[in-house]
C-alpha cells in the first residue's frame, strides 16, 4: 500500500464508522422513541395491522395488475404522441409555422393542467357527448387523458434533446445532400433520443404512479382498492400495502434511471 492508498483506506474506515453510528442512531430513535409516543398503539393498529395486511394483500396485488396494464398500453402511446409533438415544435419550414404554434399550445395547455383535472374532463366529458359503448369506456378516455398529459412532458424533453444535438451535425447531413426529413430521422433523432432516455425514464415512473388517478373515473386499480378496504376495515393499512407494492416497482426503476443518467454523464466527461 502506498501513502495515498493508506490515507484513502483510513478515510474510508472513518466514513464507514460514522455512517454506521448515525444509521444506528436513527434506527434507535425510530424503534425506541416512536413507540413511546402516546398515540403509537393507535397508529400501529390503524396503519400496520398485520391482519388487515394479510386480508387485503391478494386483492391489492391483483388490482395492481390493472395499473400495470394501463401503464403498458399508455407508455408506447406517450412515446409516439410525444415524438410527434416534439417534431411539430421542431419544424423549421415557415410554411409549417401553424404546426409549431399547435405544438407549443398543446405543450402549454397539458403541462399547465393537473393530470386529475384532465382525467375528469376527458374521462366524463367526452363519453358524455353520447358515445356508444364500448367507445365511452373510462379505460379508453382515462388513458387518452393520461397520454395527452404525459405526451406534453415527453415532447418537451425530446425537444430539448433535439436542440442539444449540435447544429454541425445537421450541417454535415445537409451538406451531403440529405433532406431535412432524413437528417432529422437518421442523424438528429437517434442522438436526441439517446440523450433523453434517463429523463424520460423518470417521466415514465411518474406516469406509472399517476395511473392511479384513473380511479377517479371508475376503474378499480390499486389506490381505489386500498380506498375500498380502508372504508370496509376503517383502517389505513391497505394504503401501506399499496405503498409497499408501488415501491417494489418504482425503486428498481428509479435506480435504473439513475444508473443510466450516471453512465451518460461519465461518457460525456
Amino acid at each position: 500500500m502506498n501513502r495515498r492508498e493508506a490515507y484513502e483506506a483510513r478515510q474510508r474506515k472513518r466514513a464507514l464508522i460514522l455512517a454506521t453510528i448515525s444509521t444506528l442512531l436513527v434506527v434507535a430513535i425510530l424503534v425506541i422513541f416512536v413507540p413511546m409516543a402516546p398515540g403509537w398503539e393507535q397508529v400501529r393498529k390503524s396503519f400496520f395491522s398485520g391482519d388487515v395486511f394479510v386480508q387485503s394483500f391478494p386483492k391489492m396485488a391483483k388490482a395492481f395488475l390493472l395499473n400495470i396494464a394501463i401503464f403498458a398500453w399508455s407508455a408506447p402511446l406517450v412515446a409516439i404522441v410525444g415524438l410527434l409533438i416534439a417534431l411539430a415544435r421542431s419544424v423549421r419550414s415557415p410554411a409549417l409555422f401553424p404546426l409549431r404554434i399547435f405544438g407549443a399550445a398543446y405543450v402549454d395547455i397539458f403541462r399547465g393542467l393537473p393530470v386529475v383535472l384532465v382525467i375528469y374532463l376527458i374521462g366524463f366529458g367526452i363519453p358524455g357527448l353520447g358515445l356508444p359503448r364500448p367507445y365511452n369506456s373510462p379505460y379508453i378516455w382515462g388513458t387518452v387523458a393520461l397520454v395527452l398529459t404525459y405526451s406534453a412532458y415527453v415532447a418537451e424533453i425530446l425537444r430539448s434533446g433535439i436542440e442539444s444535438v449540435h447544429a454541425s451535425q445537421r450541417a454535415a447531413g445537409l451538406s451531403l445532400g440529405m433532406s431535412e426529413r432524413s437528417v432529422m430521422r437518421d442523424i438528429v433523432l437517434p442522438q436526441a433520443i439517446r440523450r433523453v432516455v434517463p429523463a424520460n425514464m423518470n417521466m415514465l415512473i411518474a406516469m406509472q404512479k399517476d395511473v392511479a388517478l384513473l380511479s377517479f373515473i371508475g376503474p378499480v386499480e390499486i389506490l381505489r382498492q386500498a380506498g375500498i378496504f380502508k372504508s370496509l376495515f376503517a383502517n389505513f393499512t391497505p394504503y401501506v400495502v399499496a405503498a409497499a407494492i408501488f415501491l417494489v416497482v418504482t425503486i428498481p426503476a428509479t435506480r435504473y434511471a439513475d444508473y443510466l443518467m450516471n453512465r451518460q454523464r461519465d461518457a460525456r466527461s
Binding site: Q169, A172, G177, I187
Partner: peptide, 14 residues
C-alpha cells in the same frame, strides 16, 4: 450539395 462536397474543421462525423 451532392455535386459539391464539404469537409469541416471539426469532422462532424455522426
Amino acid at each position: 450539395r451532392q455535386r459539391i462536397g464539404i469537409v469541416f474543421q471539426s469532422f462532424n462525423l455522426f
